[in-house]
Amino acid sequence: MTDTVIPTATTARPRRLSFEWLGVAPFILFAVMFLILPTLYLVGAAFVGRDGQLTLDNIAGLFTEQILAAYWISIRISGASAILGALAGLAIALAIIRGRLPDGLRSAVMTFSGVASNFAGVPLAFAFISTLGRLGLVTIILKTVFDIDIYRAGFNILSFWGLTLTYLYFQIPLMILMIAPAIDGLKREWSEASQTLGATPLQFWLYVGFPILWPSFLGTLSLLFANAFGAIATAYALTGSSLNIVPILLYAQIRGDALQNPGLGAALALGMIIITAAANILYLVISARAERWMR
């Protein structure tokens, strides 16, 4: 933007500049105070020992069996719910946008997705306990009508699969919301051109459709991963502190210094940041390669 509007640019300029920065300053200040400083503070604290000296002990402290197990199960749950959620969300989005279903269905699904993607946390846990808990409706119907006892078969709502199944309730809608614009961006002419060139629908998706969706898909996938990795309310309401995932471990640490070492708590948080950031950096690297055909 150059100043072509006001002829008296020399006198108007300083005033206008101050307005611009006055408008942006609260935002920057806010970001620094409530996003950047707290994060940096924790990153720093992870390298400070109880005596105030710089140390790597806290980081080394992460490599105990309990903490590594917590990271591992967190990564597995987040990964499984992100991948399954992304695939299911993609399938549903394709069905409602390009599957020749009635028009009204699309807006209904999009609205519902807006609701369900925000229906996370404690109430979601209640809903799944009512559904698949020991006394849940589906559990009981399966037992009395179909004579299948899922709990005796090894299922538990408080387990890996139980939590993954619950997380899918907000992961799938999030995927639908995020991938829909990308699917809309697939031009009808691309599919028509590929048809006149003799390609089957499968060949179109293989060579054109999915490659074009791939960066958006990956980007959303990494977001879903971070989304599940940091989620605690659902898991906490569902399992109390019985499930050993990183956010619950950190929660216990903040509440009552469960690890009896504030530095270790900061290291735990640092680990979470590194993992969610790594997921996003991985996405950026892959999509930069995949998007070399884009402007």
Binding site: K187, E189, W190, E192, A193, S194, Q195, T196, L197, G198, A199, T200, Y207, V208, P211, I212, W293, M294
Partner: peptide, 21 residues
């Protein structure tokens, strides 16, 4: 016949080149 069985060539107003290829 389906479009992909007709052995025709078509050029569209908005080019419709596959952007990823």
């Amino acid at each position: 016949l389906r479009p992909n069985e007709r052995k025709l060539g078509m050029v569209f107003q908005a080019y419709a080149l596959f952007p990823n290829l």
